[in-house]
Structure formats: C-alpha cells, structure tokens
Write a protein that binds this DNA or RNA. Sequence first.
DNA 1: CCGCCGATCTTT
DNA 2: AAGATCGGCGGG
Length: 200
Amino acid sequence: MSFYSRDPTSVAPDLIGKQLVREYSGNRTLRGIIVEVEAYRGSDDPASHAFRGLTKRNRIMFGRAGLAYVYFTYGFHHCLNVVTGNEGEASAVLIRALEPTEGIEFLKHNRNNPVKEIDLTNGPGKICQAFGIDRRQNGIDLTSSKSELRIESGKTRPVRSVLTSSRVGIRVGVDKNWRYYDPSSPFISSKRVKEAPSSN
DNA sequence: CCGCCGATCTTT
DNA sequence: AAGATCGGCGGG
C-alpha cells in the first residue's frame, strides 16, 4: 500500500510537514511546507464533490491516488487536492495552508503584494493564486519528481503537533473532525473552526 | 476580532 | 440556487 492509497483521514495528518513544490518553466522554483489540510471521502461524505457520483468536474477524484484534483469555485478561486484511496473510491485531501519557504518574492507578486506575508498562503484559494495553480494542473502526478507541481517529503522543520477540527466552509458533514492543522503555524487559515462534538 | 456581503462562474 | 473562497467594510 502506497502513501496516498490509504483512507484520506489517514493520509491527511501525514501530509502536515511535507513540501509543495512548483516549477515554473524550468528555472523558477516555489516551495512551501503544508500546515493545514482537510480529508474528503467519496460516496459516504456529503461534503465531498464525489458524494453524488462521477461528474465532469470531479472525474480525477475517481482516478489513481497521488494525482492532483484542481477545481474552480466561487467564480474566482482554484483549490488543490491530492487524490487518495483506491482507484474508484474518489477520496481526496484538500491543501488549505502552507508556510512559504522558497520563491517568496514571486509568491508576493502573484498575490498582488499583500501587506502581510501571512496572507500569501493561509487559505486554499490563496495557495493556488500564489503558486500559479489552475485547471491546467488538474490530473498531474504529484508523486513524480518530474512534475511541475509535486509533493516532496524531504526534511523541512521540526515535527510539531497536529490537531483536528470540523472542516471549513461546509454546511453538511460538520460532525466530522477531518480538518488537520499544525496549531503552532501562523499560516493556518484564519477562520477558527470548532471541534465537532465527539465523532471522528 | 468578528460578522456580513458582494464578486463571478461552474455545477446541479 | 448553492458553493471545499476571498477581501473589504462596519461595528464592538
């Protein structure tokens, strides 16, 4: 069983501390350390895009683990997921926040020079804008060292704790604590979400 | 710090 | 008609 072919609720906490890497036209590299993610399961998770089955938008979710599922939402924003689980299960992990470590000046440029560095990558839409991710990266293999967009597990910084909470921005499935984040990072998305009563 | 709201477009 | 968002604005 490979890293990404597990249940998304197992993959999600293990992604904290790994690096998102983006190569621009072969000569510019952008990097950030993942500090917040959310797990979305397929057929049994009403908050998942795959809950109602295969559509044109979510078809990558039904593919192999380790692929990038990138979707466009609210007329403005893109969000990046990693497909997990066995092929056909349509589960994924949403990348919600990063600590930028390389290419910060270019990230600022892409984000229209925000006043605070925190605002570069503390949300899923902000990550995609900063890293230049859109539907052209939908379906890319995030596990290949040759991909222009990939996730690497090299050493980053000391491992810190991982907490859970209810997921952000959903109206169904709020009973599941499937948001995973490093509470010591200033880059976690600013919305505070309460822990759901007890279920996991 | 918090909550509300508008922008804009894809999907259902 | 709602949505796995963001940024600006107003009030406490």
